[in-house]
Nucleic acid binder design. Structure first.
Length: 295
DNA sequence: GTCCAGGGCA
DNA sequence: TGCCCTGGAC
């Protein structure tokens, strides 16, 4: 493996292929970077952009968000999906305001201690907001390393090994390391994709162990099949949340149940009740007398 | 129509 | 290990 060749090729490819995203601007405050990473955990860039812009305009600091009720965060989250993350981001803002003097911490351990911040987000913020040299590994990076370095078609289960692999590739210079972290993710996202890799336009095709050994399919993707969304509890929960976001005040329990199950003859009559009770236990909705509202 | 991606939590 | 949501790819 030619480490220098790979790093230089990926970074210069990134210089031409990378989109001009506002959170990549070096002047972007750490708080805005943290918000972008929360949103990008689960959502494509195109959908995140308008929500992110509105969010940091409305809540330019952690304390500003912490001063509003969490339900406002859930409403502003809109349809980004996984609305528990809006609650977690609000809680993280409270923790930053209270424990860190309204300044996003730069140490990975401090970041990891924040609600909703895991190994990926902690290192992403340390690297991209503070310029620290850390391996930042998401599933795209893991796939790129599995193929280019290990000659495997797909990454295995996430492991500490992934961080070691990326750390070995990282340039010594922190700024170049930050670029490589972002570039490797981008390469995996748009070129070295899971299903249809575009090796013809890959900047590191000449070094790729997987390509060099004839694309062995030695990783039969044992990913558990995702449950269908149509008719799922998740869909029912999403419908209740949409109704609560649209209503600017409490809605009756009956209305929430009706929103959960618009089908007049649902196959699973208990599903609406499950949706409401699980949302209550997640704290995404709260009881207000006989009605329900955002927290 | 079906399948898939995405990080963190319990 | 299973669950959370949505929209886009196939």
């Amino acid at each position: 493996m030619d480490k220098i060749g790979i790093v230089d090729a990926v970074n210069s490819w990134f210089g031409t292929a990378a989109r001009d995203l506002p959170w990549r601007d070096p002047a972007t405050p750490a708080w805005a970077v943290l918000v972008s990473e929360f949103m990008l955990q689960q959502t494509q860039v195109e959908r995140v952009l308008p929500r992110w812009t509105a969010w940091i305009e409305r809540w330019p600091t952690p304390a500003a968000l912490a001063a509003d009720p969490p339900g406002e965060a859930v409403r502003a989250w809109d349809r980004l999906g996984y609305p528990r993350r809006a609650l977690w981001l609000h809680q993280a803002a409270v923790e930053i305001a209270e424990r860190h003097g309204n300044r996003v911490p730069s140490a990975v351990d401090d970041l990891l201690a924040l609600t909703g911040v895991g190994p990926y987000t902690a290192r992403a913020v340390a690297a991209f907001a503070f310029g620290e040299r850390h391996p930042v590994v998401d599933t795209n990076t893991r796939r790129v390393i599995a193929r280019a370095v290990h000659g495997r078609a797909a990454a295995g289960m996430p492991a500490a090994r992934d961080l070691d692999d990326m750390a070995k590739l990282l340039p010594d210079d922190p700024a170049a390391a930050a670029v490589f972290n972002a570039a490797a993710m981008e390469l995996g996202a748009i070129v070295c994709t899971a299903r249809a890799p575009r090796c013809d336009v890959c900047p590191i095709a000449e070094w790729c162990e997987w390509r060099g050994s004839g694309y062995p399919d030695n990783a039969p993707a044992k990913r558990p099949k995702q449950a269908r969304f149509e008719g799922s509890d998740r869909q029912a929960r999403g419908r209740v949340m949409a109704a609560l976001r649209a209503a600017h005040g409490p809605v009756t329990r009956a209305a929430a149940l009706a929103a959960a199950a618009p089908d007049p003859s649902p196959r699973d009559p208990a599903q609406a009740e499950r949706a409401v009770s699980s949302l209550l236990s997640d704290g995404l909705i709260v009881a207000a007398g006989d009605a329900l509202r955002l927290p």
